[in-house]
């Protein structure tokens, strides 16, 4: 997930951050401007588009009838997939999902799943036989860094916007009825990603900063301030103190971002 920038630029970015500054004028703990639009794809059961600076992510949700997993017969199924669409970056190639898009999808999935954001028991139609399956498809439309936070936010915004079809059971058959009810949501998990550059933690790294970072750390925080998912990435490391600082800052930042979500 990288394109080439000059060593001079890399040095500039690292040196500025060492002094607590960033080339685009932000503080280390500042996000870029966040814009959220919901319900922009009418064919989808729910949708949302996030602009995080120039990073753009569209998420659409679809709901289908399906079978539950044998170990959770009373719960609906959540499936998250991520596409790094080739038009979003010269480094994205068409073809089957690579490790980056799989990791992205699994981080988004974990934030929603582990925070128990969706009341999946309400998606059960017939225990062990019929449940609603929710497909969350993350579509990256423009890559300018921090795809994780943008995708996680877009996914939650789309779920908040998702409508569940009404149904009735006639002669043992599940029939869909006209009309919708909102998807039963309990939590709004927010994922905050830190990039480690010049031994400092930087929030919401843009593309060129990501190419300088040693490692990244993503934390999903639920509405009560609990940590519900973490992922470290990149070939660097974190000290224990950095991890604890990140956990504290993630709680503050997640609260700020959650206010932007309409519920």
């Amino acid at each position: 997930m990288s394109s080439v920038i000059t060593r001079v630029k890399q040095k500039q970015i690292a040196q500025a951050i060492a002094k607590g500054k960033r080339l685009d004028g932000r503080d280390l703990a500042d996000y870029r401007e966040i814009k959220i639009e919901q319900g922009i794809i009418e064919r989808a059961e729910g949708s949302a588009r996030i602009l995080l600076g120039k990073t753009e992510v569209l998420v659409g949700t679809k709901i289908e009838l399906g079978e539950p997993f044998p170990d959770t017969p009373n719960e609906g199924v959540l499936t998250v997939n991520a596409e790094l669409v080739p038009l979003a970056s010269s480094t994205f190639e068409p073809g089957p999902p690579d490790e980056n898009s799989i990791e992205l999808a699994r981080i988004v999935d974990r934030g929603i799943r582990e925070s128990k954001a969706i009341d999946t028991e309400k998606l059960c139609i017939e225990p062990g036989k019929k449940v609603f399956v929710i497909f969350v498809d993350v579509y990256v439309l423009n890559h300018d860094g921090n795809l994780i936070d943008a995708s996680a936010l877009a996914a939650v915004a789309a779920l908040l916007n998702t409508k569940m079809p009404n149904y009735e059971i006639k002669e043992g058959e599940v029939k869909l009825k006209p009309g919708y009810t909102p998807l039963p949501m309990r939590k709004r998990p927010i994922t905050v990603t830190f990039a480690k550059i010049s031994d400092k933690l930087v929030v919401d790294a843009w593309l060129e900063e990501e190419q300088v970072m040693d490692a990244r750390l993503s934390m999903a925080i639920d509405d009560d301030g609990n940590i519900c998912a973490i992922q470290k990435g990149g070939s660097g490391y974190f000290t224990v103190q950095e991890i604890l600082d990140a956990a504290k800052m993630a709680r503050e930042k997640s609260e700020e971002i959650r206010k932007k979500l309409k519920w």
Partner: peptide, 11 residues
Amino acid sequence: AVTLLQMDGIL
């Protein structure tokens, strides 16, 4: 140096 950190669950 912590080189892997993941979590799922609620803490």
